[in-house]
Design a protein around this nucleic acid. Sequence first.
DNA 1: GTTGACAAACTACCACGGTAGTATTATCAA
DNA 2: TTGATAATACTACCGTGGTAGTTTGTCAAC
Lengths: 128, 128
Amino acid sequence: MAKTKLHRLGDLQLRIMQVLWDRGEATVAEVHDLLGARPRLAYTTVATMLRKMEVRGLVAHRTEGRTFVYRAAVAAERVSGNMAEHVLDRLFQGSLATMVNHLLTAREVSPDELAKLETLIAERKRAS
Amino acid sequence: MAKTKLHRLGDLQLRIMQVLWDRGEATVAEVHDLLGARPRLAYTTVATMLRKMEVRGLVAHRTEGRTFVYRAAVAAERVSGNMAEHVLDRLFQGSLATMVNHLLTAREVSPDELAKLETLIAERKRAS
DNA sequence: GTTGACAAACTACCACGGTAGTATTATCAA
DNA sequence: TTGATAATACTACCGTGGTAGTTTGTCAAC
């Protein structure tokens, strides 16, 4: 399996992956529907993108009748992890604290989120 | 000034920005040296990239004699913020806790980092 | 003055994300 | 049998990141 650079997926590709991760499997038509962007994409755009993504190893398909049923070929965790780590390393020199600091000041974070974060950190401290 | 999409900067562009953020100003030769990648990039590659980046409004330059002295034209915080938020929204549905969870499990985090994180969260809680 | 070094400008390519039209083919209904 | 429908396949195009060679201009040293 080629060293598929998992960071650097385009926006459309990410949105498609999201659909597949959510649904498990989906036909081109289903992906097309579920994307539902403002200037609705052409059906063929989605089909082409899926084909390109299959070449890159991001998705795979099985055939049902004459319809392709696509599924994700890489786990959401791997992609999320890779992209998040990439940003962390390139932009924040690997410092999670710096990154979180930026994000905390840049946007509203609900008390609920804060509580969850607190628990996470506490758990991590205990484990080390 | 065009709506410079600040998320989606390539790797080389980010590394160049990093140099400029660090140094304030730098000539092409200096940037070229400071990048110091394994298969060393050609001087002209860096020069070309800087010119392209100037068109996009990422950097600017002044002339000193006949050499260009470049500087960043966008703040590190804006770029970091944009890219981090983009990943957060696209990959973690905006949940900071989810993102941090991934990053905590994916890599070693020093006790020092954990302590800083704890402080950040605590401060944030108090402020809300 | 001619030469050599260096800087920028220009030009050229490739890869790939994104977008979509056209062509082909398989299937089903009238 | 014919025609409509719907699916994939093929092709094409643009923008831009990345990479670098070639050309041109200029300054300094000989």
